[in-house]
Structures are given as C-alpha cells and as structure tokens.
Design a protein around this nucleic acid. Structure first.
Length: 273
DNA sequence: AGTCGCCTGGTA
DNA sequence: TACCAGGCGACT
C-alpha cells in the first residue's frame, strides 16, 4: 500500500486506538518478516511492553514502546497493519499477531511477504530508516531545502524522486501525480530542470501528498488504514492508471511507459520533455 | 545507473 | 501463459 499518505493514515488511525495498550501475546506465522531478531527474542522482548506512541518517518511506521524500544514496520507493497477485536476472523495472509490486554490485536497482513518488522532500541538499525532524505511535509522543508537537494544530481527525475535517500515518502503513484502537476516529463534529467520548474515541483509534491492524506490514501489494490477502511484518493488521481484516457487539462490521451521498470503515466502535451 | 529477486494474486 | 502490481536492497 504504502506511500507517505497511506502510511500517515495508518499511523493516525492506529495511534488513536493502541496508545496505552499492553502487549500480552505475540504470534509469528511467517518468520522471515521479522528482521534482525530471532522470533523467540522478538516475542520475549515484546510481551509486557506498553504502546507509548505511533509515528511515521518516510514510509516506516514507528511504534514506540515502554523501556525505550521501537517496533518498526515497513509495509512494502502489500502490507496492512490492522487493529481488530481478537474474535474477528483472521484475514488471509495474516502473518504476525500482537495481542493486547483489551481483547484486541494488531495484525500484520502481508500478501507478498515483502514487508518487514524490526524491534530495535536505535532507529539506525531498522533498514534504511536512518538514511532517509528529508520529510516533504515538514515545516523546515522549504523551497530552498528542496533546491539544495538537486546540487550535483544528474539522474532521471522520476528515479530521483523515488529514491528515499533523496526525499522520503514518495512512491510510484504520487511521483507520477506530482510530475504531472508540475508539467515535467518523467524522463527529464534532474540537471535540466529550471529554477521555475523546481518551484512548481516543490509545490506539486506537497500538494499531492496533502491531498492524498486528506482523502485517507489511495486504494488501488490492498491498501486499508489501521481500522480496515479503504482510501478515496484513487478517485482524484490525474494520470496514474489512466492510460488512453483524456488528460483533464488538455484532453490529450495519457500515455504509459516504463521508467526503470516502473509503470509510468504522463500527459505528452502537458509535461514538457 | 540499471537489472533482478523477493512473493502472491489478478487480469489480459 | 504471460505480465502486471503502492517497495526496496543486493547485485553488476
């Protein structure tokens, strides 16, 4: 599911539900999803801990526990993190279950098993969490900050925006949407983009992410929030998954190409090469 | 910088 | 049967 708006929506829906709950039981059905620690250690460390907070960094969900431990979840392509009553039937592909004292559970559902769960006392241990680029919606992420990122960068703009070490949180859908909104062709080289275009891109990135959050995420396939609810931003997408349909601005047909293996949608009229 | 592997399921 | 899918890390 997970780009920044979807992960943020999961975090928001979970934090209102699980903060203060105490972990009583942990079940791991698919061991490979637990990174770094053995399943035995993972269980032993979690049981008895209390949930202190839930937040997001890039596409990582950070669940703060008592005793300064962090349960960090990355959903990758198909992960769901669901808060549910323990008597509710388990969905298919439910691979990790964390039970609380209140007869409810946090369930990690992950069809393609790409997701990962880390239990750490230091963020730098969890995947590339410590190497993420800036948060595009944070207050100190200014236009100047954004422009500075482009120094000495010459790659294809779409790939750069997908690079989490460059900028955290964008994925395939929102990158296409942002480039459309900024009028920039996805294959443009980063060093061939004007100051004016960078300013438009900066605004576009923030707008598509904020709109995505406002509409509670984009549900094209598996995505649901922490309460199991689908998003609505798929109804507002301008180019993604609209191959052959008319551009909402100029009525030209939206094209689909491959950029580094990723399906890429753009308007050949509105997005300048 | 680009390609491949990880996995399962839906669709053409 | 083949190809496609919100991601990312390990390769070359």
């Amino acid at each position: 599911m997970p780009e920044l708006p979807e992960v943020q929506t999961v975090v928001d829906t979970l934090s209102s539900r699980i903060i203060g709950l105490k972990i009583t039981e942990v079940e791991v059905k698919v061991e490979k999803l637990i990174a770094l620690s053995t399943v035995a250690d993972f269980k032993a460390e979690l049981i008895g801990k209390e949930i202190k907070g839930v937040r997001r960094r890039g596409k990582y969900i950070i669940i703060e526990l008592s005793d300064d431990k962090y349960l960090i979840v990355h959903l990758r392509m198909t992960g769901q993190l669901l808060y549910a009553a323990q008597n509710l039937e388990l969905a298919k592909h439910t691979h990790v279950i964390i039970s609380f004292a209140n007869q409810h559970q946090l369930r990690f559902i992950n069809k393609r098993k790409f997701g990962r769960i880390y239990l750490v006392s230091d963020f730098s241990e969890a995947g590339s969490l410590a190497e993420l680029g800036p948060e595009p919606l944070s207050e100190d992420f200014t236009l100047d900050t954004f422009k500075a990122l482009f120094e000495n960068r010459r790659g294809i703009i779409k790939n750069l925006l997908l690079n989490q070490k460059f900028l955290a949180g964008l994925g395939n859908i929102y990158v296409d949407e942002a480039l459309y909104l900024a009028g920039i062709h996805p294959l443009r080289k980063a060093d061939q983009i004007s100051e004016e275009e960078l300013a438009k891109l900066y605004q576009a990135i923030r707008k598509v992410l904020k709109d995505g959050i406002k509409h509670r995420g984009t549900t094209k396939w598996d995505y649901v929030d922490g309460s199991g609810q689908a998003g609505e931003h798929q109804d507002y997408l301008q180019v993604y998954d609209r191959k052959g349909k008319n551009c909402y601005d100029c009525a030209e047909q939206i094209e689909k190409i491959k950029v580094s293996g990723r399906g890429t949608y753009f308007c050949p009229e509105c997005q300048l090469s």
